[in-house]
Simulated scan of single mutants.
Amino acid sequence: MSRGYSTQQVRQRGNIRIVVLALVVALVVGGWFAVGSISQSLREQGAVSVRNAILDSAKQCCAIEGSYPASLEHLQRDYGLRVNSQDYLITYEIFAENIMPSVVVVPR
């Protein structure tokens, strides 16, 4: 016994396939945007963490030596600070030995 499909049933199946395909495409595109947004948020949080680590090291240096370090390299060399210069652009500016340095960290 063979089952025949009417024209209306064939159209309904085609419409269902189109709707399912559209939903899958929408989910993929939505997931892609969500991953991009999460990635950007993580990079910004990483920049804040790097800045805080630099400032903490500078405070430690000031407590031990009596003045803030003149350069970021001093913190890296003498205080074990490690920063990822490939992922972050870091600006370290000091105005005077007794004033906390200005540190700006921007994700690349």
Rank of each mutant, 00 (worst) to 15 (best):
I90W: 07
R11T: 15
R108Q: 13
A34C: 07
I18M: 08
R77K: 12
S49Q: 10
Q40V: 10
V105W: 05
A34Q: 12
N15F: 11
R11K: 12
G36H: 09
E65T: 08
Q9M: 15
R13G: 15
E73N: 07
D78N: 08
S102H: 12
S67Q: 15
Q12K: 11
L21G: 05
G80K: 04
S41D: 11
R82K: 10
L21I: 00
S57E: 04
K59A: 11
R3P: 03
A58L: 07
C62D: 05
P107I: 04
V10H: 05
V20G: 02
Y68V: 02
A70Y: 06
V104I: 15
L27K: 00
L55S: 03
A22N: 01
A34V: 07
Q45D: 13
D87E: 12
Y68I: 02
S49W: 10
L42S: 09
S39I: 01
P69N: 06
C61H: 13
L55D: 02
L42R: 12
P69E: 00
E93F: 05
N52F: 08
E93V: 13
V29H: 04
S6Y: 01
T7V: 12
S2L: 09
L21S: 02
I18S: 01
A22F: 09
Y68D: 01
Y88A: 08
Q12F: 14
G14V: 06
Y5W: 14
L42P: 00
R3L: 14
S71H: 03
H74V: 10
S71A: 08
S39M: 08
M1N: 08
Q12P: 01
I18W: 01
I54L: 09
R17T: 00
H74M: 12
V19L: 14
C62R: 14
V103K: 08
L23S: 08
S67F: 10
N52T: 10
L55N: 03
V19I: 12
I38S: 09
V19R: 02
Q45K: 11
G30F: 04
V24M: 13
L55G: 03
S49C: 07
Q45T: 09
Q60A: 11
V25L: 14
G46F: 08
V83R: 00
Q40W: 09
E44C: 00
A96Y: 08
G36S: 07
A70H: 06
R3S: 07
V103D: 08
C61G: 01
V105G: 05
S37L: 15
F95W: 06
L81N: 00
N52E: 13
I16V: 14
I90G: 06
G4W: 03
P69L: 03
Y5V: 13
S85N: 10
A70K: 13
Y88R: 11
V83W: 00
Y79S: 01
V48P: 03
V29G: 03
D87A: 15
N84Y: 02
V103G: 04
D78G: 02
V20Q: 02
F33R: 07
V19K: 04
W32T: 14
S6P: 02
Y5K: 09
Y92V: 07
V24R: 02
C61E: 07
F33P: 02
